[in-house]
Design a protein around this nucleic acid. Structure first.
Ligand SMILES: NC(=O)c1ccc[n+]([C@@H]2O[C@H](COP(=O)([O-])OP(=O)(O)OC[C@H]3O[C@@H](n4cnc5c(N)ncnc54)[C@H](O)[C@@H]3O)[C@@H](O)[C@H]2O)c1
Ligand SMILES: NC(=O)c1ccc[n+]([C@@H]2O[C@H](COP(=O)([O-])OP(=O)(O)OC[C@H]3O[C@@H](n4cnc5c(N)ncnc54)[C@H](O)[C@@H]3O)[C@@H](O)[C@H]2O)c1
Lengths: 208, 208
DNA sequence: CGCAAATTGTGATAAAAATCACATAATAAC
DNA sequence: GTTATTATGTGATTTTTATCACAATTTGCG
């Protein structure tokens, strides 16, 4: 009872709550979160109830408390350490992105096969693939981003798997399969483009 | 009867069929596509049936014909012209990406407010925001990618909307709302990270 | 040419997800 | 305090999505 869509909604509730907090709100109602995220109020309450998140009847949800609980479910109560494999166009964009900093997501290092990419400066560490297994072990990294070209994705996937990585966000346009050892989230941007194109071409509005 | 998930699956079937074609297969069965994409064979057939895509009993689907029909549904039978607003880390990665070229997706130009980004060379045209409405009209562009910082997203969204853009793929971490005039597909990468983190932390395997 | 094997296409059925609706509790107003 | 009002929390219900299962058809083979 906790599929991908439901977790996705929890992230959205969290983002909406953060925005309201930044506007100095102290409490929030299922209704507000529903408006902000485009779902019904009972959907919000049902989602919360499944994760044991409770509010006060008539009083709604204390934003701080709600955020604490949502962050706990989403793993944002502790630092999530990532490495990234493939420092090309996309890998570099991600490794340079400052938006993750404030959100308990940290990319510790990048890895590549191209020596021209290597860099030992602490703030943008880019290392050869050979050092990946050791780095993962020493730093107890469980999560990885994969941004190598399609032809290299399967090989890189296996290296990550062997190194003990537990979860991979894969941007290469090839479906890598999850199993007991590694969970893969395939994120194919071309597919996202196609999705938008379909709904524009058919003049239908998808229910997000 | 054609939600986002179903269109997403059609994209995956298309990708699987392309791969099989590149291996010189001439026909394919619902079973093969199911394996390749991680769904059941009857799901494949049901999806096809909803879009009027037919095969031969006992003979499966001719790959070429199947691709023609899937490409038609997904709008890959004609060039899809995009512009991109915000040429920073992510915008530059997307505009430089060569993978879209072979797939009927073309980014005609980028737009930014920072004069340092402007570039009039034909192959990587980056123009000031002021030229956006004219460019969109002249080139009959309906689709846009939005990669500006969060604080600028709402404003840029409205400029795109006023210029007559019909569909936007939004990477800024803020939920822009679709309406009759513009369809928005919000793609929040942090949310995708959180999703992976959740399933890794809970040791559950999401059904893709 | 007729029979056996294999695969589609789809109505029927099951499972999953979302919504409804209302009893229950908290708050505010007086 | 008592009462009216407003939200929550959740079982019941509806809607949506996926699977089953099998008749209809095609293919290949003897
Ligand atoms: N750039 C984009 O906007 C974009 C859009 C959609 C999808 N993608 C996908 O994301 C992936 C990366 O795209 P990109 O544009 O950054 O590619 P890129 O070619 O710019 O970068 C790929 C990097 O991976 C490195 N690499 C190659 N083989 C490797 C290996 N075996 N081990 C480790 N590193 C290796 C290369 O040295 C290079 O630095 C590709 O699969 C691409 O299809 C990118
Ligand atoms: N870089 C990433 O890996 C990454 C990851 C997740 C999300 N994002 C999101 O994608 C967006 C872009 O990220 P980025 O790292 O490329 O940012 P960036 O700061 O590198 O680039 C933003 C660009 O937008 C331009 N810009 C600012 N205001 C503008 C306006 N009003 N009109 C037109 N252009 C304007 C800037 O000049 C700059 O070139 C952000 O919203 C970010 O949160 C990026």
């Amino acid at each position: 009872m906790s599929n991908r869509t439901r977790i996705l909604r929890l992230s959205r509730y969290k983002n909406a709550a953060l925005r309201l907090k930044s506007l100095n709100f102290l409490k929030v109602f299922s209704d507000n979160l529903a408006d902000a995220t485009g779902v019904t109020a009972s959907q919000v309450r049902k989602d919360f109830s499944i994760f044991g998140i409770e509010g006060n009847r008539r009083g709604g949800y204390q934003i701080d408390e709600l955020l604490t609980q949502l962050n706990k479910v989403l793993g944002k109560d502790k630092l999530q350490k990532f490495i990234i494999v493939g420092i090309g166009n996309l890998g570099r964009a991600l490794i340079n992105y400052q938006g993750f900093v404030k959100s308990e997501i940290k990319i510790l290092a990048g890895f590549d096969i191209d020596p021209a990419k290597f860099n030992r400066k602490a703030d943008a560490l880019i290392l050869p693939m050979e050092e990946l297994p050791g780095f993962v072990k020493t730093n107890e990294v469980e999560l990885a981003i994969l941004t190598v070209p399609e032809f290299a994705a399967q090989e890189a996937f296996e290296k990550l798997r062997n190194a003990g990585i537990k979860g991979i966000l894969n941007f290469a346009p090839i479906r890598l399969k999850s199993d007991d050892k590694v969970i893969v989230h395939n994120l194919n941007l071309e597919t996202e483009f196609e999705n938008l194109i379909y709904f524009v071409n058919t003049h239908t509005v998808p229910q997000d």
